[in-house]
Design a protein around this nucleic acid. Sequence first.
DNA 1: CCGGCATATATCGATCCGACATACCCGGCC
DNA 2: GGCCGGGTATGTCGGATCGATATATGCCGG
Lengths: 181, 181
Amino acid sequence: MNVRTLCLSILHEGDATGYEIRRLCVDGECSYFIEASFGSIYPALARLESEGLVSSRTEQQDGKPTKKVYSITPAGRDAFVQELSEPLGEETFRSPFLLFARFAHLLPRDLVEARANEFLRERSERNKIVTAAKATSMNACDAWVINYGRAMMGVAEEYLRAHMHELIALARAEPNKDAAE
Amino acid sequence: MNVRTLCLSILHEGDATGYEIRRLCVDGECSYFIEASFGSIYPALARLESEGLVSSRTEQQDGKPTKKVYSITPAGRDAFVQELSEPLGEETFRSPFLLFARFAHLLPRDLVEARANEFLRERSERNKIVTAAKATSMNACDAWVINYGRAMMGVAEEYLRAHMHELIALARAEPNKDAAE
DNA sequence: CCGGCATATATCGATCCGACATACCCGGCC
DNA sequence: GGCCGGGTATGTCGGATCGATATATGCCGG
């Protein structure tokens, strides 16, 4: 699932700028299973335009920089459906925190506690965004996907809240201040 | 969380070859939150060796190609703990299937049904691996992490099993065979 | 006996991320 | 008034990473 397809999927639902696509990835309701950075979105949009799958127009705004609004073309819609029909890539889930947690016994308790709290807070905030998305003004497929995410991320938060103190208890009791530089 | 750190984390638990590290990422109990390909593991190991954080020895085997077994050095252990103490990266979760599912209404029912079944089967097999991992011969931190994964992936499987028929029902009824080339 | 599969190492092009550069306006603050 | 931080917006660039491929060997089944 490359950034090209991601851009087409968003433009399929309506016009957007590169900046807005990025925001949807970070803050949107689908932020829990989609991701892309500026460094890949802008080149992807430029390439899509050169291939005739999207078109763009510049819009002046006062008080804000000029923006470049992209629209999907009929050829783009076809290419998108075609792409979805091809075999799907693997699901990837990568969690630096879980790698950290596996080695909690090597690390000072203060650090483990701090990281666990950060992690819970971030998870909790993300979940609030997804839970806040109201089912009205959302098609049935979107609702299905959002509920999938809600279910998964909900138990993640619950597990953390219920068991994080166990993890903290497993951490090294003495920070061993001599080792600190 | 780069591949370097991932390699150090595995070598911290015991010696391994590049090939074995890859296998642990794909089939191991932590396969649900860790990933790396040959294309990044081998260069990472070479660089770690040049920096003195790991050492290697070649081992002849009969019936199998010669292998290069890596061990972590004391400097490597220090660097690993140091790396874990630094701020953690963001969690990333990317799911081509969920992107596909958002647009189920555009796609023929047969295809949606086939992909949903594939996805459930893969999820289910992964879960069996993680559930099969016995708590004995596992330290408490590992158990904590495995249980986190079990909880998340468990509900993912349940949700799929319970609701996939709803998604299939949302797909396009007629495959529209004229459109197929 | 030949093709497919598992073991094992390694490279290479394409993709993608993360940090930075640039630019403008707004609001707060000393 | 000046200055800094933050939001909006586009884009580049180096490095990290992926996915496919190359190479080699030996085993097993048809």
